[in-house]
Design a protein around this nucleic acid. Structure first.
Length: 821
DNA sequence: GGATACCCTTTACC
DNA sequence: ACGGGTAAAGGGTATCC
C-alpha cells in the first residue's frame, strides 16, 4: 500500500475486462507525475410509473436483469438493480437504479427496456468522466490524499505511461489546498500556407518557465541562442515531440491551436508518414469535431486560449476581434511584432531572424496571457467541477449545465436527458416575446440619473421560483403567477409552485456566492478573488440564456416566456413609478431606466431608489447605475422617431459612455467612426455643436482633397459563414470572392477588408459592390461614397438635435462649387 | 426601366 | 447546436406600374 497527496488534472477512461476505468493524470506536491486508476458504480435510472405494486416492480426488475449486450470486444451485463426513492424534476418518484458493466452500453440497455411500467430512463448520457466525478467526487484541480496499490502488475501496458507513479486507488480524502505551479509550454507555428497541411511548417516556437526556443529548418542570418536548427521538416516535427517529452508539461497552450497549430502538425506528420507521439503513453493527438475542431493529447492538457477567452471574457472586452494581437493589447498592453508576411521563397538573409523573433514573441504573448488567465481557468474548473480540457472549451450553456449536474445530489435529483434532434428542432421553432425597450424622445438633456436591476433575469428566476420543474399545470391556491403573456392565438399566464425548486435554488446559491466573491474581491483584491468573482458573474448572467437554449437539459419555453414577462413588467413598472415621482423618463432598455433630475437633488433620487427597492420582491434589487451631466438621444435614420439603443452620456468625471452609435460599430470605416466620436465628445463636453460643425466641415474638405489616408477609409466586415451560403452578394462578400480568386484562404469568421473606389469613366454608379477593391488593390477611393455613405450618415442625426441640416450645408457648398466652374 | 418595399446581413444593446 | 430577444442600418433583390 502506498500513499501520496494528489492533484487531478487530466481525465480519460479505458476499458479493462469489459469495465470502464478512469485514468487521471495529475501531480503530487513534490512535482511528481501521478497516474491514478479507478472505477466506480456504473448505472442509470429507470423511473417507474406511479403507484406500481411491488409485484410489478419485481417482475420488471427480473425482465431487466436478463438483458445482455454483446459487443465486439465486450459483454455488458446487468449487475444489480435497486429500488430507490428519488426526485425527478422536483417530483417524488420511485426509480430503479440499474447497475451494468460498461457505461458505453447504458444507452443500448435503456432503449431495450421500453416497458409500460417504466415512465422514463435517465442518467445514461452524462459521459463517463462526468459520471465518475459526480460519483466519486474526485474533482479536478482540488487536492486529495490518496492511497492504493501499484497498478503496474494488474494493468497491462500501464508501464508505457510516462508517469512517476501509477496507483489504483483504494482510499481518497480531500485535503487543504497546497501550492501548485503548473508546468506549462506555449507553442506557435509558422507556415507557408494557411490551409491546414498545405504548406510546410517553417518553424515552431516554444516558451515555458525559463524556456525559449525556436525550432526551424531554415537558415538564420545571425544565429540567436534560442534558435535550434534541424535538417528538414520531418526532423522539425520529431524535435518538437522530443522537446515536449523533455519538458513534460501539464499544459500545452496555443492560440487558435485547436483550429490551426495542432491539426497542422498532425497533417504534416501524416504527409511525411511519421507519428506525432505527444501523449504520455506515446499516443498521437486525437481530434474530434463538434461545432469546431478540438485536439486532445493524452496526459497533457491541450488548451486553446482563444476558446476560453471567448467564453469567459469576450462579453466584457473592448477589442473588436479576438485576434492574438488585439487580445494581447487589451490584457497585456503588448502586441505582436510587426512582420510583413511573405512566402518563404521570398524571405532572405536577416529577414529570417526577424521571422524567428516574431514567432518566438507570439508564444511569449500566449504565455503571458495564460499567466493572466490561469486563475480564471482554475476557478471555472473548480466551480463547474469539469476537467480543464472541457472547461476551457465550454460555451456558457455547458458551464451552467455542468454546475447543475454536479450539484443535483443535494436535491436527490435524477438528471434530465439531453434533447434529441427532433426535440431540438421543435424547440428552435418556438419564439417568445423578449424585453421592453422604451422609445426615447430625441434631444440633448442635462442632469440625468440611471437605475438598473442587478442580474435582473436571474433575480426573477430566484424570486418567483421559475424553472421547468416548478411550472404548474394549472393555477393553485398559493403560487407565483406571471403577467399576461401574448402567444400566437391567445393570452396565457403561467404558474409556478412556491415549493422551492432545485434550479432556482441553485441559481440562488450562485447568486449568493457571487455576492460573497465580490465582497471578498473588494476586501482583498488579487487575481484569484477577481477570477472567482468573474466566474460567478458569468455563471449568474447565463441562467436565463440557459433555460432558453434549445440544447439545454433544463430548457423550458414556458419558464423563459415567464421570466421575460416579468422583465417587461418590472421595467415598465419602474418607469411608471419614476414618472409618478415627478421625473421625466428619457429611455429604458430591458433592465434600465434613465430620467431627468431637473431641479431634484441626488439625495432625493437615492431616496426614490430606496423606496422602489422596498417594493421589490425576493432578491430583486434596483441600483444606481450613475449620475450623468449631459446626454444625447438621436432620431432613427428614417423618420422622426427616437432611435432605441443609441445614445451617449457624460458623467461628472467627464467619462463618456457611448452606446449603439456608428463609433462603436466595427463595420464602419475609421474616418466616420472617429469624426462621430469626436463630435459626440465635443458636444457632450461643451453643450453645443459649434466646434463640431467646423470640425466636420474641415474633415469633409480634407476628404474631397483626398488628404485622408487610405487606412482610414477601409471598411471591415466579418464573413459570418462560408461564401457559398450567401443569398445576397453584398460588398464584403464580393471582397471575399476577390480574396479567394487571389488564393487567399478565407472562411467563416474572417474579417474582410475593402474600400469603395471611384467609378470608371462613364460608368454608372449602380451597385456599390461593383466598385469594391481590396486594400492593396490600386485605385482612388470614391470621395462621394465616403461623404454620403459614411461621414454624413454618421453625423447628420447628431446635428439634427440642434436643428442643423448638415446635408443642406454640405450640398449647398457643393452646388456653389459647381457654380464656380 | 426606375421607384419602392422587402429581405438579407452585420453588429450593436441588454 | 453548443445562452436569449430587440433593434438599427446598409445594400441587394423582387416587384410594381
Amino acid at each position: 500500500m502506498i500513499s501520496t497527496d494528489f492533484l487531478p488534472i487530466d481525465y480519460d477512461y479505458f476499458d479493462f475486462q469489459g469495465r470502464n476505468y478512469i485514468r487521471i493524470i495529475g501531480r503530487n506536491s513534490e512535482g511528481k507525475r501521478i497516474c491514478v486508476l479507478d472505477t466506480c458504480d456504473i448505472y442509470f435510472w429507470a423511473i417507474l410509473e406511479d403507484d406500481l405494486p411491488q409485484k410489478k416492480i419485481d417482475e420488471t426488475s427480473k425482465k431487466i436483469e436478463k438483458i445482455e449486450i454483446e459487443g465486439k470486444d465486450r459483454k455488458t451485463k446487468i449487475e444489480k438493480i435497486e429500488v430507490q426513492e428519488k426526485n425527478f424534476l422536483g417530483k417524488k418518484v420511485k426509480a430503479l437504479k440499474i447497475f451494468a458493466t460498461n457505461y458505453k452500453d447504458l444507452h443500448d440497455i435503456a432503449s431495450q427496456i421500453d416497458f409500460k411500467e417504466i415512465k422514463k430512463r435517465r442518467g445514461y448520457d452524462l459521459g463517463f468522466v462526468t459520471h465518475y466525478i459526480i460519483e466519486k467526487k474526485i474533482n479536478p484541480m482540488q487536492w486529495y490524499e490518496i492511497s492504493g496499490e501499484f497498478a503496474n502488475a494488474k494493468f497491462q501496458g500501464i508501464e508505457n505511461i510516462d508517469a512517476d507513479l501509477c496507483i489504483e486507488i483504494e482510499n481518497i480524502k480531500k485535503i487543504d489546498e497546497k501550492k501548485f505551479a503548473p508546468k506549462i509550454l506555449c507553442y506557435d507555428i509558422e507556415t507557408d500556407d494557411l490551409k491546414i497541411g498545405k504548406g510546410e511548417i517553417l518553424m515552431i516556437s516554444l516558451i515555458g518557465e525559463n524556456y525559449s526556443k525556436v525550432l526551424t529548418w531554415k537558415k538564420p542570418h545571425k544565429k540567436e541562442q534560442y534558435v535550434e536548427i534541424v535538417k528538414d521538416e520531418t526532423e522539425l516535427l520529431e524535435k518538437f515531440c522530443e522537446h515536449i517529452k523533455k519538458v513534460s508539461p501539464d499544459f500545452l497552450i496555443g492560440y487558435f491551436s485547436d483550429g490551426f497549430d495542432l491539426p497542422y502538425l498532425k497533417a504534416r506528420a501524416e504527409h511525411h508518414k511519421i507519428r506525432l507521439p505527444l501523449g504520455l503513453d506515446g499516443s498521437q493527438p486525437k481530434f474530434s469535431r463538434g461545432i469546431s475542431l478540438t485536439g486532445k493529447i493524452f496526459g497533457i492538457v491541450h488548451i486553446d486560449l482563444l476558446k476560453f477567452i471567448r467564453t469567459a471574457y469576450a462579453q466584457y472586452m473592448q477589442s473588436e476581434t479576438l485576434s492574438l494581437n488585439e487580445v494581447a493589447k487589451e490584457f497585456l498592453g503588448d502586441k505582436k511584432i510587426d512582420f510583413k508576411f511573405k512566402h518563404s521563397s521570398e524571405i532572405k538573409g536577416k529577414e529570417w531572424d526577424d521571422y524567428f523573433a516574431y514567432n518566438l514573441h507570439d508564444s511569449q504573448l500566449v504565455k503571458n496571457l495564460f499567466d493572466k488567465f490561469w486563475p480564471d481557468i482554475l476557478e471555472f474548473t473548480r466551480i463547474t467541477q469539469e476537467p480543464v480540457f472541457e472547461v476551457t472549451r465550454a460555451g456558457l450553456s455547458k458551464i451552467t449545465e455542468s454546475y447543475i449536474l454536479h450539484n443535483l445530489d443535494k436535491f436527490n435529483e435524477i438528471p434530465e436527458k439531453r434533447p434529441i434532434n427532433e426535440e431540438i428542432g421543435k424547440r428552435r421553432g418556438i419564439r417568445v416575446e423578449g424585453a421592453f425597450v422604451l422609445e426615447p424622445t430625441p434631444g440633448m438633456y442635462e442632469n440625468i440619473a440611471m437605475f438598473d436591476f442587478t442580474s435582473m433575469h436571474t433575480s426573477i428566476i430566484i424570486s418567483h421560483n421559475i424553472s421547468s420543474s416548478t411550472l404548474l399545470e394549472k393555477k393553485e391556491k398559493d403560487c407565483y403567477e406571471t403577467p399576461e403573456i401574448k402567444e400566437k392565438n391567445k393570452d396565457v399566464k403561467y404558474y409556478f409552485s412556491k415549493e422551492k425548486g432545485f434550479f432556482p435554488e441553485l441559481m440562488r446559491e450562485i447568486f449568493e456566492l457571487r455576492k460573497k466573491a465580490k465582497e471578498e474581491y473588494k476586501k482583498n483584491p488579487n487575481p484569484i478573488t477577481k477570477a472567482r468573482s468573474n466566474a460567478f458573474k458569468v455563471l449568474s448572467a447565463s441562467a436565463h440564456g440557459y433555460i432558453a437554449f434549445f440544447g439545454a437539459r433544463y430548457y423550458s419555453h414556458e419558464a423563459s416566456a415567464s421570466i421575460l414577462a416579468f422583465v417587461r413588467k418590472y421595467n415598465k413598472g419602474t418607469i411608471e413609478k419614476v414618472e409618478k415621482a415627478g421625473y421625466k423618463v428619457i429611455f429604458g432598455d430591458t433592465d434600465s431606466v434613465a430620467f431627468l433630475m431637473k431641479n431634484k437633488t441626488k439625495e432625493e433620487v437615492i431616496k426614490l431608489l430606496e423606496k422602489l427597492n422596498s417594493e421589490l420582491p425576493g432578491v430583486m434589487h434596483l441600483e444606481l447605475e450613475n449620475f450623468y451631466k449631459r446626454g444625447i438621444w438621436v432620431t432613427k435614420r428614417a423618420g422622426l422617431i427616437g432611435a432605441k439603443k443609441k445614445y451617449a452620456l457624460i458623467d461628472e468625471d467627464k467619462k463618456i459612455k457611448i452606446r449603439g452609435f456608428e463609433t462603436v460599430r466595427r463595420d464602419w470605416c475609421q474616418l466616420a467612426r472617429e469624426v462621430q466620436n469626436k463630435i459626440i465628445k465635443q458636444i457632450l463636453e461643451d453643450g453645443n455643436e459649434k466646434k463640431s460643425l467646423e470640425y466636420t466641415k474641415e474633415i469633409i474638405k480634407k476628404l474631397k482633397e483626398r488628404k485622408i489616408p487610405k487606412n482610414e477609409i477601409i471598411i471591415k466586415t466579418m464573413l459570418q459563414k462560408p461564401l457559398s451560403e450567401y443569398k445576397t452578394i453584398s460588398p464584403h462578400v464580393l471582397a471575399a470572392r476577390k480574396m479567394q480568386e487571389k488564393e487567399i484562404p478565407i472562411s467563416g469568421g474572417n474579417l474582410i477588408e475593402y474600400y469603395i473606389s471611384e467609378p470608371k469613366q462613364g460608368e454608372k454608379k449602380k451597385l456599390i459592390r461593383d466598385r469594391v477593391k481590396l486594400p492593396d488593390e490600386k485605385g482612388d477611393y470614391d470621395t462621394d461614397y465616403y461623404l454620403e455613405h459614411q461621414i454624413l450618415p454618421a453625423v447628420e442625426n447628431i446635428f439634427q438635435v440642434f436643428n442643423i441640416d448638415i446635408n443642406e450645408i454640405i450640398k449647398g457648398k457643393k452646388q456653389m462649387k459647381l457654380g464656380d466652374f
